[in-house]
Computed example of a mutant assay.
Amino acid sequence: MATLLLIDDHPLVQVALEAALTRSPIPLQLFAVSSEQQARDYLRDHPVNLIILDIGLPDSDGLELLKRLKHRDENQAVLIYSAQEERLYIRMAQAAGAAGYIAKRQPMEKLLAAILAILGGQRAFPDLSEADNPATASLTSKERQILALLARGLSNLQIAEQLHISNKTVSTHKKNILDKTGTHSVVELAALWKAQQ
């Protein structure tokens, strides 16, 4: 019997998942915790075949927790189950070693299919129509240059001085980069840039 650990602070997710698991062609046993601390305590004594992880936890960032879980055991399969659907999060999860990513608005059958696929040694990521054409592909060469400098932590003013352009031009490019990549902050931009290097 395969054992699953759900790390999610919404009790209804556990109820819905337990109902979906009754339709599994193989026996699956589900355990659930609602925080990183509870997950650590549980995993200390119980090996699991698959961790189903929400990235919005009350006590931690799920993507950082994913990295810690993979650092603890690089062979641990982790499926991200999140309300976040932006490509950025999917790419960051892939880069951090997740075995799959399912959006919470998807039907439970999709989650069950992903669980079974991962237990069978496959990966379960959504088909990103831009998988071969990442978010940064639509950027101009100047925008890419500015993105790289932003990712290194340079301010608009420092970038303007380095590229011999006005501060206002840097701001305009930065706004266009955020729009084109669907990101909302320089922190997300830096993570996107790192995930693609």
Rank of each mutant, 00 (worst) to 15 (best):
G56Y: 10
R105C: 00
L65S: 07
I102E: 00
F125Y: 15
N133E: 01
G97R: 13
S34Q: 12
L88E: 05
N133H: 14
E86H: 05
L178N: 01
R91N: 06
L88W: 12
Q76G: 02
T22L: 15
I55P: 12
G153T: 08
E36F: 09
I51N: 05
G97N: 02
D45T: 11
L147K: 07
A83H: 05
P134Y: 06
D127Q: 13
R105M: 01
L50C: 08
A190R: 14
V15T: 15
L30S: 13
S60E: 09
Y81G: 03
R123A: 13
A32N: 07
S166T: 15
H46Q: 12
P58V: 04
R105A: 02
T169K: 07
H173F: 14
K67V: 03
Q158H: 09
S185A: 03
A151Q: 07
Q76M: 13
P11C: 05
S60W: 05
D9F: 00
I51R: 01
D45E: 13
M1D: 08
L65A: 06
R68F: 02
S82F: 01
A151C: 05
N49C: 04
I55A: 02
E161S: 07
A131G: 04
V15N: 07
L116A: 06
A20F: 08
E161R: 10
A39M: 02
P58F: 07
P58D: 09
A39E: 13
A190P: 03
H71I: 01
L28K: 04
H46P: 03
K168Q: 14
P107H: 10
L119G: 03
A113M: 03
D45P: 00
L163A: 03
L111H: 05
D45R: 06
S129M: 11
Q38A: 15
V13T: 15
L128R: 01
A117F: 00
A98F: 01
L6I: 06
L66Y: 06
R23M: 11
S60K: 12
T140I: 05
L21I: 15
A99M: 02
P25V: 02
I177N: 10
K70E: 01
I52W: 04
D9A: 06
L21H: 04
I80A: 02
D45N: 10
L28E: 12
V33Y: 14
L43Y: 09
L147G: 15
H164E: 12
A103R: 01
L154E: 08
P25K: 06
N133A: 04
G182K: 08
Y81I: 02
L178I: 10
G100H: 02
S60H: 10
K104A: 01
L154R: 14
S35F: 03
L119S: 01
E36S: 14
D41G: 00
L192G: 02
Q145N: 12
N133G: 00
A2S: 10
H173G: 01
L69M: 11
I177Q: 09
R87H: 03
H184Y: 09
T136S: 12
